[in-house]
């Protein structure tokens, strides 16, 4: 540092300025829309504030209320955990299955691929409303079809035991993104490895187990971790499904019962809304927000460490 040539120093300063200029929009955005609100969320989590009267210091009361007394916190966390375990694993297995299928289809492959991909594009509110209708237990087409085959007809979104499976079905329907990612990964598996395995007498399952899987394992990890993070953010679908299935729509002057039926569709992001924008208990909403933040960052850290480069900050 001590022997730097003055011209070099000037050039360095210029280059630092240039970098700062390029980065400026984001530096501003980061501070105003990330750093500041995060600190403010922490601040409010210790305050009592209803939106009308000035915030007052509330110590750890909001924290103990959320963890001990708020009736929706643990059900929401349990539901989110259920979805993380069941929905994410089914989505990864199904996505891989559809990816495998689409690489083997010889007739009209483009058409099939489009069919499989299309539902991913359906706007979530529209897709959810469509599924609530399709899975309407009394008159919905799904149960009508099940009836034709003499199969049991579940209550889907109207039955606390079936509402999460119904949401999972909706998530499987929109598998298009994972399918494409897996398809690309499958096509990248070196062909000679399959040939070598075949010469060694490996059958299709052994080839899948010893050639395909090791080759696509980084993609699998990527799919699992991003799936977990997405699931922790799961908001629109369960909320709309609950509202529409219960027959209570937000626009018409009534409060809705969150998580209909029986809190079975309540997820962690929804209780931030419930506390912050229905109960106007700003402090407790911020406590839940911080819990959600910690969970998401923990999984993001896993992705950055183990993601073998996907999300690596290095190039």
């Amino acid at each position: 540092m001590t022997t730097i040539h003055p011209g070099l120093k000037a050039r360095r300063r210029r280059s630092a300025l240039r970098t700062a200029a390029f980065l400026s929009p984001w530096l501003l955005g980061f501070s105003v829309f990330f750093a500041y609100p995060l600190l403010a969320t922490l601040y409010f989590s210790f305050m009592k504030y209803d939106g009308f009267t000035a915030p007052v210091w509330n110590g750890l009361a909001n924290w103990s209320y959320v963890f001990q007394d708020y009736p929706f916190f643990w059900p929401a966390l349990r539901n989110t955990l259920w979805l993380v375990v069941v929905m994410v694993s089914l989505r990864v297995v199904f996505g891989l299955g559809v990816g495998l299928l689409v690489t083997r289809v010889r007739t009209a492959p483009g058409l099939f691929r489009t069919f499989f991909y299309l539902p991913y594009l359906a706007p979530p509110v529209a897709a959810t409303m469509a599924f609530v209708f399709l899975l309407n237990p009394g008159t919905g087409p799904a149960n009508t079809v099940l009836d034709l085959f003499g199969m049991p007809q579940p209550g889907w979104f109207k039955d606390a035991d079936w509402s999460k499976p119904a949401l999972t079905l909706l998530a499987l329907w929109g598998i298009g993104d994972l399918m494409i990612i897996f398809m690309a990964a499958l096509l990248d598996v070196p062909r000679d490895q399959y040939e070598a395995a075949e010469l060694d007498g490996a059958g299709p399952f052994a080839r899948f187990r010893y050639v395909t899987l090791p080759n696509i394992s980084p993609i699998l990890l990527f799919a699992v971790v991003t799936g977990v993070i997405e699931t922790m953010q799961f908001y629109t679908q369960p909320l709309v499904a609950g509202k529409v299935a219960s027959g209570v729509i937000g626009g018409s002057g009534q409060q809705f019962e969150p998580g209909y039926p029986d809190q079975s569709t309540l997820t962690v992001p929804q209780i931030v809304y419930n506390l912050g924008f229905q109960r106007f208990d700003t402090g407790s909403a911020c406590v839940v927000a911080l819990v959600l933040f910690a969970l998401c960052m923990a999984f993001t850290a896993v992705l950055m460490r183990r993601g073998s480069g996907f999300l690596s900050a290095e190039d």
Binding site: S31, V32, A35, Y36, L39, A40, Y43, Y49, G51, F52, T53, A54, P55
Partner: peptide, 18 residues
């Protein structure tokens, strides 16, 4: 700097809260 910005904004929030 971020902290200062946050503090200033928080004060604004408090002032305008009622």
């Amino acid at each position: 700097r971020t902290a200062a910005l946050a503090a200033v904004t928080a004060v604004c929030l408090l002032a305008g809260a009622c």
